[in-house]
Design a protein around this nucleic acid. Sequence first.
RNA 1: GUGGGUGUAGCUUAGUGGUUAAAGCGCCUGGUUGUGGCCCAGGAGACCGUGGGUUCAAAUCCCAUCAUCCACCCCA
Length: 420
Amino acid sequence: MAQFQSPRGMNDILPEQMAIWQQIEQTCQKISRQFGYEWIVTPIVEDQRIFSRTAGTDSDIVSKEMYVFEDRGGDSLALRPEGTAGVVRAFIEHGMSNRPQPLRLCYFGPFFRYDRPQAGRYRQLWQFGVELIGESSPIADAEVINLQNSLYKNLGLSNVELRINSIGSPESRKKYLDSLKKFLKPQINNLSNESQRHFETNPFRILDSKIENDQKIVSQAPKILEYIDNEDRGHFKSVCNYLDALNINYKIDSGIVRGLDYYTRTVWEFQPADGGSQSTIGAGGRYDNLVEILGGTATPAVGFGTGIERISLNMKKIDEHDQIQNIDAFTIPLGEAGAIRSVQIGNILRNAGFNIVSGIAGRSLRSQLRSANNQNASYALIIGDDEVNANRIQVKALKTEQEQQLLSEEELINFLNTSV
RNA sequence: GUGGGUGUAGCUUAGUGGUUAAAGCGCCUGGUUGUGGCCCAGGAGACCGUGGGUUCAAAUCCCAUCAUCCACCCCA
């Protein structure tokens, strides 16, 4: 057993896992470029208040999952638990409201939540997210959902389901919450302890309770969509129309209420059709008040975040085998002159655009050929003192029965150009 | 924070009270002078998660602890 292990819930990504990881990252880059989103990198650490003010002090993320610490100067900092608040902070700090609106931003990086790890849930998790800031039109909501949907389609996740809801404006939501409380009050003693706690602080959360009896009670409760005002309803209807026009399937689900307080109007989640718990692979929503909450001028915005590990888990279900690296040639030094010459040849070939792994001088020819074969190289380049004296390189094909050749440096480059 | 399962070599596992803990895969070396894959031989690699207890004797039984996995809560 190793003396040290990675911190709980924080995992190494090993070389054999990188193929799928990079495929996801590159697809994020491709899709964001297709939609004209610009990349932004914000610090992994922020003033703790950035998150407590925006996500809500009663949210689980802030109340029990945030890594908070004091730095040596006494400032209270937090490892970022989510991406939107930091991006919005940067938006305000750098006066980005003076750039052409709407502003389209995206990010990719690690986030931290102090939670108990389990399948698909980690203390360090990676997310790709996009934010479309400065536009209130439903076409913006649809664009962001469309981008997210395209990402999954491009990655071959065909059976993901979109569930969508509107939680209205703060005003209409307040009206709704009043009548929800009125409805729940007579039955409050039948609710779970958790839900009873939420009754005072955030009755909204009772709606997505997983407890069966709570669900039974809630199923009779008034629905938010019946309470949101005409403008909210029109906005939601319009988002749905755009999705229809884009041929994006969705299910309206009044149980979708996100865990963060800053959402307004449209909220949604993507999850695999066969998913159990922990299966949501990405979720987003509109947040028209967030910029103002952080001290900027009121600016509407909409965005989503998606978990890279969860995408990866779902892709593994589809295609398990690892990709092996494509090595063009493996240099095999023999003797002292050969050792020097082989490192030179390696660089010459790399500069010519080939992928070259260097053999280790001092090992036998047999063992180096075995290594070359194990590493899936196409050619072995044997460079011993004989070859150095003759100013030639022995080229041995490892994947075909092609006859071994003795080539000059120039001939070798030409040969590789036509062969790999 | 709550509940359950599991900890033996790099990996997958065998071993359920009795010598020096075993195998497959992987790794390294070799199978005459400088030629891979298949095959063969050899080697390295494990304080059996950790600490305590029971016993003449513990990888094996008991307790604790840690880690990990799974579920709940919640979320990506």
